[in-house]
């Protein structure tokens, strides 16, 4: 390859590169302004795990402690007592979100469909203690469920960090999802399986 060939190749290479960047200058940016514009997460996104309730608002959890056993990082803490019928009653259900790694195994192993991974992912807090979610808080978040359980996950509404405008848009956006009406009661093992 002669010198001129080299120079010519070099110039074409450089010019081609510049054309690429110039074309992209007029493309629509692919990024969006995150806190104002929110991603439309698919159902099944593994955000924080929440506890699901039935129609009457009772937790589906039976305190079988499978999730606590299977959790790889051991962040689920459950205490229960037996009532007069020898049935287990859930007393405490704490998840230490500061150590949770969002693997979703808890939701997966639950035979009663009592835990699901929600789309809540903005968990920052000023106090570390606040990251330990107790039964009531987890249940409250679980009641925000809208839509079906898909891939062990749910979508929530009334996200504390959601702007009102986005919320209106968000509910409109989910209307065209394949399964519109939220089943009132999640059946046992109620996943898309």
């Amino acid at each position: 390859m002669g010198l001129w060939q080299q120079v010519a190749d070099g110039v074409t290479g450089v010019v081609k590169g510049h054309l690429v960047t110039f074309r992209n200058l007029f493309r629509r940016p692919v990024t969006y302004r995150y806190p104002e514009v929110r991603p439309n997460l698919p159902v099944g996104t593994r955000g924080m795990p929440v506890l699901l309730s039935d129609d009457e608002g009772n937790l589906l959890c039976t305190a079988c402690e499978v999730c606590a056993r299977e959790c790889p990082v051991q962040v689920i803490h459950i205490t229960a007592h037996r009532d007069e019928n020898k049935k287990k009653v859930l007393d405490e259900f704490d998840i230490d979100m500061s150590r949770c790694m969002f693997c979703g195994i808890c939701a997966e192993v639950c035979a009663f469909g009592a835990i699901a991974m929600s789309d809540i992912y903005e968990l920052a807090d000023f106090e570390q203690e606040n990251l330990i979610y107790n039964k009531e808080r987890l249940a409250e978040l679980g009641r925000r469920r809208k839509g079906p359980i898909i891939n062990y996950g749910i979508k929530t509404e009334g996200n504390p960090y959601q702007s009102p405008a986005e919320e209106a848009e968000g509910s409109a956006g989910t209307a065209d999802k394949p399964a519109q009406s939220a089943p009132a009661t999640p059946t046992a093992g109620g996943t898309s399986r």
């Binding site: 960047t21 110039f22 992209n24 200058l25 493309r27 629509r28 940016p29 692919v30 990024t31 302004r33």
Partner: peptide, 13 residues
């Protein structure tokens, strides 16, 4: 801004 738009970003907003 230019760098942002060349790189399909928004740049400062």
């Amino acid at each position: 801004k230019l760098g942002g738009h060349i790189q399909n970003r928004l740049g400062p907003v």
